[in-house]
Write a protein that binds this DNA or RNA. Structure first.
Lengths: 228, 228
DNA sequence: TAATTCGTTGACCTTAGTGTCAACATTTCA
DNA sequence: TGAAATGTTGACACTAAGGTCAACGAATTA
């Protein structure tokens, strides 16, 4: 695994192939889930012969775990602003916006994560019990302090965070539902802006947080087109 | 399939076994997805020999489709109040409540549905394009009329419906996330009441809908316990 | 260029899973 | 009771998939 013993350096081939495999695997796992994705399908997508995958990853499970870890790393990096000193409207508004955009740019990671959760999150219990839990409790405390200062309604911070999480994540995980129902091939940039604006309005106002003029209402509603 | 030719009636055995199989299949498909569930696992859960499953369902796919159809039937039945004459607060409030309770009582159906959506909803395009789309457009129109009457803010009805959908569904689909993070084995009845109350408060208020006194704020926040 | 490590790949093994079938068992009804 | 329909089940065939291996090829460094 580690570039072993005497140093035959560069390892350019290795780096290239690892990248190809990981990218292909991310797509396949997101599309089909762990069981549904086969090493063959990953190999084809990466344009490598199947045994070659095993050269880099001894087993499917190890490959999957690696993909999952990469996803979690990205996750942890991504959402960390929000402190008690912030203005709730700015902080929560920005968080909602960032998360919607993350659904737009990173739907695969989101789907892999969601798939894990739906099926019991066997590979995630550690993460959920530690990093995620800690992160969430931290944010909940911040919100509780805002509530104590009378800056927002006494909603339950946990449920609020889960509300933001679910309503934004939705556009990555269940994109098919959204596009099919709206009769579009995929969501455009304006759509995501509209989604963010609507969620910001409803959630901020719903929590009794004062904020500058809302951006919603420009169009009647999500331009719906005929089914294809 | 249909109780064939000359009528040897009752068919009690058939009815019993079909019920056993469908129940077991629902659980297995929800836990493991289509690919992940095996006929063997379904047979074991139904306490029937494996070939017996094939006696009732020629193929795994047909069994899966049957389970999916049953889920959709339940779905369509379940959420149909809400008309333009209703009071928005009552209608949306009741809808949110019903949907949270549905997540509590029917998590399996929800998971199977979510799983389909995440993986492209190959078996659902027809449903999404027709029944679901129609249902959603109907509700969107009602909300638009409320908006036109000044009964609520000009939020985008589609995004609002998806918001309600995702935030309630979440407690069925991603129950593991919720319970793990809250450090509970499973959510209690009060938890669901609290979830519904919080969602009602945030969403109704967020849409500028007037409503009677909110139920939130009774407890500090979701009683979190030590991880197990 | 020779030695060494890294990378590739066809062929094979094994297992798990789906679906089939024919023989047998049970139930139903005349 | 006996014939017809329904239901049960062990054994088998076939395939897809994961994983192994040894022989070969390519790159790197001395």
């Amino acid at each position: 695994m580690t570039s072993s013993s005497k140093n035959y350096k560069t390892g350019k081939i290795r780096i290239d192939n690892l990248a190809k495999i990981l990218e292909a695997a991310e797509i396949e796992f997101a599309l089909s889930g762990y069981k549904g994705a086969s090493i063959m399908s990953i190999a084809k997508r990466a344009k490598l012969p199947r045994p070659n995958i095993h050269y880099y990853f001894p087993s499917k499970l190890e490959l999957y775990n690696r993909v999952l870890m990469d996803v979690l790393a990205l996750w942890n990096e991504a959402f960390d602003r929000i402190t008690a000193d912030d203005d709730p409207a700015d902080a929560i508004g920005a968080y909602i916006y960032a998360k919607v955009m993350y659904s737009k740019t990173n739907p695969l990671a989101s789907k892999i994560f969601a798939n894990e959760l739906i099926h019991g999150a066997a590979h995630l219990t550690e993460y959920l019990n530690q990093d995620y839990r800690e992160w969430l409790m931290g944010k909940a405390e911040v919100m509780q302090s805002w509530i104590n200062q009378g800056k927002m309604d006494p909603v339950d911070p946990f449920y609020l965070i889960l509300l933001i999480w679910s309503s934004t994540q939705h556009y990555a995980d269940f994109s098919v539902q959204v596009t099919t129902v709206l009769g579009k091939q995929e969501l455009a940039d304006e759509d995501y802006e509209g989604i963010a604006a609507n969620l910001q309005h409803i959630i901020l106002k719903g929590c009794g947080i004062k904020f500058e003029q809302s951006l919603i209402g420009a169009k009647p509603y999500a331009a719906i087109t005929k089914p294809t």
